[in-house]
Nucleic acid binder design. Structure first.
Length: 386
DNA sequence: AACGCGGGGGT
DNA sequence: ACCCCAGCGTT
């Protein structure tokens, strides 16, 4: 393997790592946590779990997984579902393109693979939302495919095992770690059909329980004897941390626009691409920092928004809610909500088609809304008012 | 190769 | 209030 050379590994060190790999499986047999998807051999269920587990921790995923499988128990059910139901089931999990891609992929599987989840990793890899990691994880766990699954946890474990000084996500180092992962899988998986599944899950479990980012429990590690990071005395130096960029901050004026007669609330569907794509949300507009701090300026901005975009004039301000902060990976947002009464029934007709709706309080629960907007609404409804 | 994309846990 | 975590698609 030429790719292995990127890791600067001596042959004796590589042999020691191969020799330690079987100990990983014995450790996993005793340390594996119980998870609902580990009870299943259903490739669809395993696929759903792996997509949910991208960027999301196990404890967060469990209730979503169980609800999803109860409502959409197989790939045909998912393919037949409306996107609105798919997004509602995903509401609060984040990275909503994961759900939209899973939905599209299910339709491809039904249309082009006779509703059978592809067993070949390179075929599975072609589906929307499926990259190298997910293809390897699902096909190894569900079908015994002999491919190593390298996620962020595994990348950290491997980086420490070889005391990698360079960024493990760079192309050359990434190929090196993939090659090492493949070598370890061959050394531990044996000929057993379950071998690749157990090995891949063991590596991920090791990263989650022992080889954790901040304070690794090296004394518990089954690979410790062969770990160059541990031998260096400072395992947490590997992999090197990347410098983070400053996160910008946006202020948004948000309209809780209530119909004066019915009390229904105006919702708008967000664009099909970009942040929180396809979710329903309150009308909102970005304001500068000065306007954010000035109630009259926010009301003016919202009045203009309601008039120009929704044809609603003569909105009456009812009250201001407390600003709500929300943090995304790449953006901090402060929502400044204003409750308004509008008597726009005449202009309510089908303007904007399916892009906007007047919705009763009960019906709002059926829509998929961003978490930050849920925070605003829970404030609205918490204070003895409807 | 760089960037966009949510939300939650630990300290 | 600050730190950290992360796979895939797009550009």
């Amino acid at each position: 393997m030429a790719d292995l050379e990127a890791l600067g590994l001596g042959s004796a060190e590589l042999e020691a790592l191969r020799a330690a790999a079987p100990r990983l499986l014995r450790w996993f047999a005793g340390a594996a946590r119980a998870m609902p998807w580990r009870e299943s051999r259903d490739p669809y269920a395993i696929w759903v779990s792996e997509v949910m587990l991208q960027q999301t921790q196990v404890s967060t995923v469990v209730p979503y997984y169980e609800r999803w499988l109860a409502e959409l128990p197989d790939v045909r059910a998912l393919a037949a579902a409306e996107e609105a139901q798919v997004l509602k089931l995903w509401e609060g999990l984040g990275y909503y393109s994961r759900a939209r891609n899973l939905h599209r992929a299910a339709r491809v599987v039904v249309a082009e693979h006779d509703a059978q989840v592809p067993r070949d990793p390179s075929v599975f890899r072609q589906l929307p939302g499926v990259g190298a990691y997910t293809a390897a994880a699902v096909t190894s766990i569900a079908f015994g495919a002999r491919v190593a699954a390298v996620d962020g946890n595994v990348r950290r474990v491997l980086s420490r095992l070889v005391a990698l000084e360079r960024d493990p996500t760079r192309a050359r180092e990434s190929r090196g770690l993939e090659a090492l992962a493949a070598a370890l899988l061959e050394a531990s998986a044996g000929d057993d059909l379950e071998g690749p599944s157990r090995h891949n899950q063991a590596m991920m479990e090791l990263g989650a329980l022992v080889c954790v980012p901040r304070a690794p429990r090296c004394e518990q590690c089954p690979m410790g004897a062969a770990c160059l990071g541990l031998r260096s005395g400072e395992p947490t130096r590997f992999p090197p941390r990347k410098a983070r960029r400053a996160v910008p901050h946006h202020d948004l004026a948000v309209a809780i626009a209530l119909d004066a007669r019915s009390g229904e609330m105006l919702l708008e569907k967000r664009p099909e691409r970009g942040l929180l794509a396809g979710l329903w949300d309150l009308p909102q507009t970005r304001v500068d920092e000065a306007a954010a701090a000035d109630e009259a300026a926010r009301v003016l901005a919202l009045s203009q928004l309601l008039a120009e975009r929704y044809g609603l004039r003569g909105a009456r301000v009812e009250r201001q809610l407390t600003p709500v902060g929300h943090v995304f990976t790449h953006l901090r947002v402060t929502l400044h909500p204003t409750v308004l009464r509008v008597s726009g029934a005449s202009s309510r007709a089908s303007e904007g088609g399916e892009a906007r709706r007047w919705v009763s309080r009960a019906a709002i629960a059926e829509h998929a809304l961003p978490t930050a907007t849920r925070k605003v609404l829970s404030q609205l409804w918490s204070a003895a008012k409807g």
